[in-house]
């Protein structure tokens, strides 16, 4: 969706937006200028630029989002260990403070850029753009962006990623999709992480989590996964491979 051709005007909101609608106000002596731009226009513009940058180098960008401590970094570590060697990975880490997560990734011999946001509760497209200056994309196939742990703010900011993966860890409870619908609606894949805890935390019902996701009309596939006992890893790795292939095909078609 863009801000210039009017495609952000939908059947559902056009009566409110079009001239004569209740949002079109003019007062004598003053000039009313209709703008119809997303409030995140500047961010979205940079995000699109980032996406083009990824596409030029055939790189798949995956944005990982979750609350703090849901296991994003552990998932990345397990992924690095198990993913095929011919899929080359780089990681952009977002945290308010510390290089801890980037250091964890680097220990596995993988390129990691740490963004420390200070007090900002999310990554935005400009921060990713800056980070990309430090990555030679020609050397990679997949860039994982580990967003700041937060189920609210990161949902609003497009970074230029191709896929959003949202983690819901078992200790958080199965009703998170109902509590944070904006975040879970962005998900292209939902991961129920720390699934090894399901037998212990038996008030978490996977079926319930799925039902809450259906309530927000999410069509995202759901994978139960434990980075600890590695169950569910094959499904996740397959999903990554499929996305890499899809990306390649998509780009080949757009070149033709």
């Amino acid at each position: 969706m863009c801000d210039t051709c009017g495609c952000n005007i939908t059947h559902g909101n056009e009566n409110l937006i079009r001239p004569g609608g209740k949002l079109e106000k003019t007062e004598s002596g003053k000039e009313a200028v209709t703008v119809l731009h997303s409030l995140l226009h500047e961010n979205d513009h940079t995000a699109q630029h980032n996406r083009e940058h990824f596409d030029q180098h055939n790189v798949l960008a995956i944005n990982l989002m979750s609350s703090p401590g849901a296991g994003k970094t552990s998932l990345l570590e397990a992924t690095i260990q198990q993913l095929d060697d011919n899929i080359r990975i780089a990681v952009i880490e977002g945290d308010l403070e510390t290089e801890n997560d980037a250091e964890r990734i680097r220990k596995h011999g993988v390129k990691a850029i740490q963004i420390t946001t200070g007090s900002a509760c999310h990554l935005d497209a400009h921060m990713i753009h800056q980070a990309l200056h430090n990555i030679n994309l020609a050397e990679f196939d997949v860039v994982f962006i580990e967003n700041v742990g937060n189920l609210v703010c990161p949902a609003s900011f497009d970074l230029g990623q191709h896929q959003n993966v949202v983690l819901l860890s078992v200790p958080e409870g199965d009703d998170k999709p109902a509590k944070y619908p904006v975040m879970f609606r962005t998900a292209d894949l939902v991961m129920i992480s720390k699934s090894d805890l399901l037998p212990v935390l038996d008030d978490f019902k996977v079926a319930k989590a799925k039902s809450y996701l259906r309530d927000i009309a999410s069509v995202a596939p759901i994978i139960e996964l434990s980075s600890k006992d590695k169950s569910g890893m094959p499904l996740w790795l397959d999903w990554i491979r499929q996305q890499v292939e899809k990306r390649k095909k998509h780009l080949e078609q757009s070149v033709d």
Partner: peptide, 21 residues
Amino acid sequence: DWRTTLLSGDELMLMSVELEK
């Protein structure tokens, strides 16, 4: 049915500004 398409509700738009010249 849960399979629906959102018609409106996720907008975040600057609609208009009123200016004094």
